[in-house]
Amino acid sequence: MSIRLALAAALAGCLTAAAGFAYGVHVGTAQEQAAQKRADDVREAERARLQAQIDASAQQHQAAEYARQGAVREIYHESQKVIERPVYRTVCVDAAGVGLLDRAAATANGEPVANAAGNAATPADGPAQPRR
């Protein structure tokens, strides 16, 4: 009978240890969840504070914009413009003119200007005629 008693005591000890382990896991889990909830609450409070600042700033900006729009009066004038000469022509530019345009484009683009102080290689006989 003492073997049965020893086995029963060992089994009771094992069950007590398993129950204690399960209880400890439960308590530890509850503590971790509580710590996580506290951290989440702190983050949510900070987010709400920052959102309130953003909302207040947006309202101030909107009020300032309404005040500015009330003080500014936009006037639109329409005028009729008559162009007497055409902007685009069908006449081409001669070689010297092309060189001037190339140098102007290079200067505007910040590129080094080649032949800055020279003449065109061969002067044209006259303005180029449009193709027909």
Results as ranks from 00 to 15, higher is better:
Y23A: 15
A22F: 10
H26Q: 13
A22P: 04
A30G: 14
T16C: 02
A48H: 10
G24W: 09
A34C: 02
V27C: 13
V25C: 13
G28N: 14
A34Q: 12
D41A: 11
R43K: 13
A9R: 12
R47Q: 07
L15Y: 03
F21D: 11
A39E: 14
V25M: 12
A56H: 10
A17Q: 02
S57Q: 15
I54C: 00
K37C: 05
A22H: 10
A12D: 04
A17M: 03
R4C: 09
L5N: 12
A34Y: 07
E32C: 09
G24E: 08
A19N: 09
A9F: 08
C14M: 01
T29F: 09
V25P: 06
A18L: 07
Q53V: 04
A6H: 07
E44H: 05
A30K: 14
A52Y: 01
Q33S: 07
V42M: 10
V42N: 08
A52F: 01
A48Y: 06
G13I: 01
D41W: 02
V42I: 07
G13C: 05
I3S: 15
V42Q: 13
G24Y: 07
Q36R: 12
C14D: 02
D41I: 05
I54P: 00
A12K: 02
V25F: 07
A17D: 05
A52N: 00
A10F: 04
Y23T: 14
K37H: 11
R49P: 00
I54T: 00
L11M: 06
G13N: 06
L15Q: 03
E44L: 11
K37Q: 15
L50H: 00
K37N: 11
Y23W: 15
A48P: 01
G20Q: 04
A19M: 06
M1K: 12
A52W: 01
Q36T: 06
G20F: 05
A48Q: 13
A17I: 09
I54G: 00
D55L: 05
L5P: 02
A12C: 04
Q31P: 03
A30Y: 12
A6Q: 13
C14V: 06
R43E: 14
E46H: 05
L50S: 01
A10G: 03
A12W: 02
E46C: 01
S57T: 13
G13R: 06
V42G: 04
A52V: 01
A10S: 08
R38W: 05
K37F: 11
G20P: 02
D40P: 09
V42A: 12
A6P: 01
C14H: 03
R43N: 11
